[in-house]
Design a protein around this nucleic acid. Structure first.
Length: 554
RNA sequence: GUCCCUAUAGCUCAGGGGAUAGAGCGUCCGCCUCCGAAGCGGAAGGCCGCUGGUUCGAUUCCAGUUAGGGGCACCA
C-alpha cells in the first residue's frame, strides 16, 4: 500500500458516497481534492484527511456525519487497519504493518528509479540559469544559481518533464569589446583602460593571448583588440565550463548570443526576424525614430525600445530573439532563473511571451534569486575583489556547498556559515544526511561479510515484522518521497528535497537507535534489512537530485 | 515616487485555510561491555511585525501599515 494508491482509493470512496446525494459534487472529486496528508502528530494515525470537512457544506451534511459514512467505507480497504473520526471531522487512518511495509519492497525493486513520477510528463522545459558574461570567473551569486538551477532541473526531470539546462553566453555587444581592450592592454603591458575589466585574471588572459599570438603588438589596433577578445573569450568560457563541471552542474546547451546577430536564411539576422514576428503579432510600433514593443499591454510599467533611433538594437532585441529561439527549438515552457539585480526584467520577459503569442502565465516562469552572503570569505584578488565559485568550492567542498545553497527557496536571502559547513558533525546538515547513508552501508557491509547477503535478495521478504513505531514512522517517511518530489517540481522548490532528506535521516537515526538490525531471527533480520536498504536507496536518490554524493563510508 | 522580495523560537531558516505552528544551532538533563555516539531521548524557549477584512475557522488568503533588502536607461 503506497500513499498514492490509498489517496486514490479514498477519492473513489468519496465519489461513491457523495454521488448518491450530489452527483455534480462527486464528479469534481479527485485525489488532489481530498487533502490527504501525513499528520504531524503520530496520534492522529498514519495518514489523515480533512475531506469530510471540505465537502460537507457542498453536500449539505454535518462534517462528522459525512466523516462517519466515509470512515465505514475506508476501513474496508485492504491494508487499512483502522479509521478514526477526530475533532470536527478529520479521518485518521492506520495501516497494517505488512501493508505499510510494502513500501520497502517497492523501493528495493525500483532502485534509483524510485521517486520518479509523471506529474510533468509531456512538458518540454527550457531551464536557463547562470548565463554569466564570459568576461570573468563565476562569483558567489552564480554559484547559488548554479546549485539551484541544476537541482531544479533534476527535480523537474524526475517528475517526467523533458528538461534542457541552458546557458546563455553574452558574447556580443559593447562589454565584449571592453573586455577585448582590457585583455589586449594586459598583453601589451599597458595599464587597464578606463572602465575596463580589473583583476589579475585579465593579466593571465593577456599572457595567454600573447603566447598564442606573439605578433599582437604589430597588428593594427582594431584587429589586435579583436584577436585579444577572441582568445580571452574562448579561454574564459572554457574556465567557466570547467568550474561548473567540477561543481557537478551540467548544461545541455551553451547558447551563443552571436548566433542571434548572425544571418538567418532570409538574409537578415535572427533579431530582425524576431522584430518582424512581433510586429506581425501587432505589438510593435515606431515612435521618435525608434522601434518599440508595447510591453505595457502585458503589465510592464513602460514600453520598451527594441531598435534605437540610431538603428542599433537594444539588449532587449536580443532577448526577444532569444525567447523566440527557445520556442522554435521546441520548448513550450521557458524558465529563467535570474539574479535579484534583474528583477526589473520580469515584466519585460512576460511581455515578450505575450507579444510572441504565448501565454505569459503558463509558458514562461521567471524566478528571481536573492543574494547570498557569506561570513569570512576571502575576496578573489585575481578576479577583482569578487568571491569566486572556484575558491568557495575548494574551501567548502562541492557537497556542503551545493546542499546548503539548495536548502533555501530562491527568493529568500541566505547567509552561508563557512565554519559550520566545514564541520563534520550534525551541525552540518549535509553530513547528517550523508552519515545516515554511510551508517546504513556499514550495516549492509557487516551483513554481507558475515552472511554473504545482498540487497537484491530482499525483494521477497515478509515485511510484517516491521511493526515498531520507529519502523512505521520510517516507512511512512519513505512513502512520502514521490509525492514530495512531485510537489517540489510543481513549486520549483528543490529546497523541499533538503528538508525531506533531513527528516528521513532523522527517522532513520531514531529507528537505528530503537532496533538492532542484525538479529539472530532470520525473518526479522531480513525485514529490517529490507527497510534499511530502502532507506539508503531513497537517501541516495534524494541526494542525487541535489547533485550531492551519497558516500558508503565517511 | 514606483515595482519586486522579505518579516515565524536567542540565532539561521522551513511550513501552511483547520487538530498541540516545526527543524538545526545555542542552553539544560539523560543514553555507548551492543550493527558507525558524525547518533538518540527529554526539557526550556513563540501575540507567526502591526491593524483591519474574507471565512464555521487566518500564523497561512486580501487590503492597509511599519521595518529591512533589491530594481528603475534609446546601458550591457
Amino acid at each position: 500500500m503506497n500513499p498514492d494508491v490509498l489517496s486514490e482509493l479514498i477519492a473513489v470512496v468519496a465519489r461513491d458516497v457523495i454521488a448518491v446525494r450530489e452527483p455534480e459534487v462527486a464528479a469534481s472529486i479527485d485525489s488532489s481534492a481530498i487533502a490527504f496528508e501525513r499528520p504531524k502528530n503520530r496520534d492522529h494515525g498514519d495518514w489523515a484527511t480533512s475531506v469530510a470537512l471540505k465537502l460537507a457544506k457542498r453536500v449539505g451534511m454535518a462534517p462528522r456525519d459525512l466523516a462517519a459514512e466515509l470512515a465505514g467505507r475506508i476501513s474496508e480497504i485492504e491494508g487499512v487497519s483502522s479509521v478514526d473520526i477526530a475533532g470536527p471531522g478529520f479521518l485518521n487512518i492506520r495501516l497494517d504493518a505488512s501493508a505499510a511495509g510494502e513500501i520497502a519492497r517497492s523501493i528495493v525493486e525500483a532502485g534509483s528509479e524510485f521517486g520518479r513520477n509523471d506529474s510533468l510528463v509531456g512538458q518540454t522545459i527550457n531551464l536557463e540559469f547562470v548565463s554569466a558574461n564570459p568576461t570573468g570567473p563565476l562569483h558567489i551569486g552564480h554559484t547559488r544559481w548554479a546549485a539551484l538551477g541544476d537541482s531544479l532541473g533534476r527535480v523537474l526531470a524526475a517528475s517526467g518533464a523533458r528538461v534542457a539546462n541552458e546557458f546563455y553566453v553574452n558574447d556580443a555587444g559593447a562589454q565584449m569589446d571592453v573586455f577585448g581592450e582590457s585583455v589586449l592592454a594586459a598583453a601589451l603591458g599597458e595599464p587597464t583602460p578606463e572602465n575596463g575589466y580589473p583583476g589579475e585574471y585579465v593579466q593571465e588572459l593577456g599572457r595567454i593571448a600573447l603566447e598564442r599570438r606573439p605578433d599582437l603588438a604589430s597588428l593594427d589596433r582594431a584587429e589586435a583588440i579583436l584577436v585579444a577578445r577572441e582568445i580571452g573569450y574562448e579561454t574564459q568560457l572554457q574556465e567557466i565550463k570547467d568550474s561548473l563541471s567540477r561543481f557537478n552542474v551540467h548544461f545541455d546547451v551553451w547558447f551563443s548570443e552571436r548566433t542571434l546577430h548572425a544571418g538567418s536564411s532570409e538574409g537578415g539576422s535572427l533579431i530582425d526576424d524576431a522584430i518582424e514576428r512581433l510586429r506581425a503579432q501587432g505589438h510593435v510600433f515606431d515612435e521618435d525614430g525608434a522601434v518599440w514593443v508595447r510591453t505595457t499591454d502585458f503589465g510592464d510599467d513602460k514600453d520598451r525600445v527594441i531598435t534605437r533611433g540610431n538603428g542599433i538594437f537594444t539588449y532587449f532585441a536580443a532577448d526577444a530573439a532569444y525567447y523566440l529561439s527557445k520556442g522554435d527549438r521546441g520548448f513550450q515552457h521557458k524558465i529563467y532563473l535570474l539574479g535579484a539585480d534583474h528583477h526589473g526584467y520580469v515584466h519585460r520577459l512576460k511581455a515578450l511571451a505575450g507579444s510572441a503569442g504565448d501565454d505569459p502565465e503558463k509558458d514562461i516562469e521567471v524566478l528571481i534569486g536573492q543574494l547570498v552572503s557569506i561570513n569570512g570569505a576571502k575576496l578573489s584578488k585575481r578576479a577583482g575583489n569578487i568571491i569566486e565559485l572556484n575558491d568557495l568550492q575548494a574551501w567548502l567542498g562541492t557537497d556542503a556547498l551545493r546542499y546548503s545553497l539548495a536548502r533555501y527557496p530562491a527568493d529568500s536571502p541566505l547567509t552561508l556559515d563557512p565554519e559550520l559547513l566545514q564541520k563534520r558533525t550534525n551541525d552540518n546538515p549535509v553530513f547528517y544526511v550523508q552519515y545516515a547513508h554511510a551508517r546504513i552501508c556499514s550495516v549492509l557491509r557487516a551483513w554481507a561479510d558475515k552472511d554473504g547477503g545482498d540487497v537484491a535478495s530482499l525483494k521477497d521478504v515478509d515485511l510484517s515484522a516491521l511493526d515498531s513505531p520507529q519502523a512505521q514512522a520510517l516507512m511512512l517517511q519513505l512513502a512520502k518521497y514521490p509525492a514530495m518530489l512531485s510537489a517540489a517540481s510543481a513549486d520549483f522548490a528543490p529546497h523541499d528535497v533538503t528538508f525531506y532528506l533531513r527528516d528521513l535521516a532523522a527517522s532513520y537515526h531514531s529507528y537505528y537507535d530503537a532496533e538492532r538490525i542484525l538479529v539472530d531471527d532470520e525473518a526479522v533480520k531480513k525485514a529490517r534489512l529490507a527497510l534499511v536498504a530502502a532507506t539508503a536507496q531513497v537517501l541516495h536518490n534524494g541526494l542525487a537530485v541535489l547533485g550531492v554524493s551519497a558516500p558508503a563510508s565517511m
